[in-house]
């Protein structure tokens, strides 16, 4: 007996539901999404162009360590209470081989070294050494953050020992992880 009524109830409900509008995205959802986007810009002073640039730079940087779905990378702001957090979601297609990463980095390091050498020809800098050690220590701490954020099991940087120019890539690392973690208090 109960089943009959339940069935009838669902049928009637179904009938009414059919008559309701079926839009993929309701105007309310459109409003919420547009509003969240525009408030993100209002609160951070980041224009769509700047966001796009940040996105590109992040992709460039992170591709060195993981092979990811560049199209599906999501970058946006989320609200956590009264704080805003910059959220980066990266679909990882495949973790790169250690050798692969090392090769990419070595290539880049070589490039950097060449640039630096060129620069040194122009101006013979002497105060480099103190900066080097500082950057090195930053590098280690921040590498771990990146690892936690992207959630890959391999060590993204198993090439610490490979050259004295490591600090240059380390610096970039630092900027990426700190931007990922950036939480700007609402103005």
């Amino acid at each position: 007996m109960k089943d009959i009524f339940t069935d009838l109830y669902n049928k009637v409900l179904g009938f009414f539901k059919q008559t309701e509008k079926k839009n993929d995205e309701s105007s309310k959802e459109v409003a919420c999404n547009r509003l969240k986007f525009v408030l993100m810009q209002d609160r951070t002073n980041l224009t769509p162009e700047l966001m796009d640039r940040m996105r590109k730079e992040l992709i460039e940087l992170l591709s060195k360590y993981v092979e990811m779905d560049k199209e599906a990378l999501e970058l946006g702001f989320e609200q956590e209470g009264s704080q805003m957090a910059l959220m980066l979601s990266i679909p990882v297609l495949r973790a790169r081989e250690e050798a692969e990463i090392e090769a990419t980095l070595a290539e880049e390091d070589a490039k950097k070294a060449k640039e630096e050498a060129d620069a040194e020809k122009d101006s013979e800098g002497e105060e480099d050494e103190s900066n080097d050690s500082e950057a090195q220590s930053d590098n280690e701490a921040d590498t771990e953050e990146v690892e936690a954020e992207i959630e890959i099991t391999e060590e993204p940087q198993g090439q610490e020992e490979d050259s004295e120019n490591n600090n240059s890539s380390g610096e970039e690392n630092k900027s990426s992880s700190s931007s990922k973690k950036t939480k700007t208090a609402k103005k």
Binding site: E20, S27, K28, A31, C32, L35, K36, Q79, G81
Partner: peptide, 18 residues
Amino acid sequence: MIKSNDMMSVDDVVEILS
């Protein structure tokens, strides 16, 4: 309008403005 998803709900606004 909220019921028919044509207006942001109270919760939506509160969440957005926190």
